[in-house]
């Protein structure tokens, strides 16, 4: 499936579930849906997540060190969940049903 809406919209959708979603899961899912290959695209999607969190649309509910190299060895893995502000902001954009 090729994504046809802006990547940040889709990220918010993916994080809109109870318990949230791990960054590596979101990144992989987006890479697959939008057909974005390679490390550069991977990091760029992860940066979208960081920007969304920094703007308070997402917040991290769990953090762990990537010991096994699931995403990037030695770096932090974040589990993000959409915030109320994120839901309100996304309401007229991508989360029509919220």
């Amino acid at each position: 499936m090729a994504g046809n809406r802006p990547i940040k919209f889709r990220i918010l959708e993916l994080c809109n579930k109870s318990g949230g979603a791990w960054n590596y899961e979101v990144v992989r899912q987006i890479q697959k849906e939008y057909n974005l290959k390679g490390d550069y695209q991977r990091d760029s999607i992860n940066f979208d997540l960081i920007e969304l969190a920094s703007c308070s649309l997402l917040r991290d509910v769990e953090v762990m060190v990537d010991e096994e190299g699931i995403y990037k060895k030695g770096f932090l893995l974040h589990k993000y969940v959409i915030t109320d502000f994120g839901k309100a902001r996304a309401e007229n954009a991508c989360l029509m049903y919220v």
Partner: peptide, 18 residues
């Protein structure tokens, strides 16, 4: 260079939110 034309098209189409 950044390979962002696809994202540009997607964003342009979202007039109201973006």
């Amino acid at each position: 260079v950044l390979g962002k034309f696809g994202e540009m098209k997607r964003t342009l189409k979202e007039f109201n939110p973006c």
